[in-house]
């Protein structure tokens, strides 16, 4: 059968990453998903060719060491219908500690890929080396700056660009048990701004102990949509022992 004509269902899954598993890389997480989905025995579609792999489409990479409540991936199943509830249920026992599937939705045909669709992310950044008052001052400086030039290295070349347009919101949050919290909303297009770049963009440079992505958003006609909301009938999954 021509694979293009075979029935397919694309399901978008939301998952969290926390605890010690946060030190795995984006690539590691992709491999964990491949193994976990094989363990479920669900009919995941495979790529063609000599080295077939599961058809998984990941969203924005999460830097090694960061936690998240809002990671997404799209999974193609080789069948015309697939219940999101069933997928979420079969994942409970096969995902490793620290990775939890928390929701899903069947995607409408032709839905934009996660990498294209998501425009902003919310971040929760825990800092130990700064007092709340000093941090508030730092936030004012960042928000008041006309430009925030950051330099990064890419393929051996130094690239400097302005982070200021990417800083969509910034505030001091509730304190944690051991430090203070900075809440940021950063743009992802044309490239995703990293919290570490934000922290380095304005003196004094703060060293985070924990960075957590709390939300990803798709901005559409002035509204913010959670990536599951672009699909039909999203299913929120309540898991015992999450968080």
């Amino acid at each position: 059968m021509n694979p293009n004509q075979a029935p397919r269902t694309r399901i978008r899954l939301r998952y969290g990453k926390s605890g010690r598993i946060r030190f795995t890389s984006h690539r590691d997480v992709a491999r964990i998903w491949e193994r976990s989905l094989r363990r479920t025995g669900l009919p995941v579609a495979q790529t063609e060719g000599f080295s077939p792999r599961a058809k998984l489409h990941f969203g924005l990479a999460l830097a090694t060491g960061y936690e998240s409540d809002a990671e997404y991936l799209d999974v193609d199943f080789k069948c015309g219908e697939m219940a999101v509830e069933e997928v979420l249920k079969s994942l409970v026992d096969v995902l490793p500690d620290g990775i939890e599937a928390t929701g899903g939705a069947v995607l409408a045909p032709g839905a934009m890929s996660l990498q294209q669709a998501v425009t902003i992310c919310d971040w929760d950044i825990e800092l130990l080396d700064v007092a709340a008052g000093d941090l508030a001052q730092w936030v004012d400086q960042v928000l008041g700056a006309a430009t925030l030039m950051v330099t990064r290295e890419r393929k051996g070349q130094k690239i400097t660009d302005d982070l200021a347009p990417q800083v969509r919101a910034l505030e001091v949050g509730e304190p944690t048990s051991r430090g203070v919290r900075l809440l940021a909303t950063l743009g992802t297009q044309p490239r995703a701004a990293r919290p570490s770049e934000l922290l380095a963009a304005q003196e004094p440079v703060h060293r985070p102990v924990l960075i957590r992505r709390t939300r990803q958003w798709i901005e559409q006609d002035g509204a913010r949509l959670e990536p599951l909301m672009v699909g039909a009938a999203p299913v929120q999954h309540t898991l015992v022992g999450v968080q």
Binding site: I21, F23, T64, V209
Partner: peptide, 24 residues
């Protein structure tokens, strides 16, 4: 030692070498 290790791991290459958590 985890509370101390997790402060160090962001500074090293391939931190997943030190986290354990394997299946089995």
């Amino acid at each position: 030692l985890w509370p101390e290790l997790e402060l160090v791991l962001p500074e090293v290459s391939k931190p997943a070498r030190y986290i354990g958590g394997e299946g089995g």
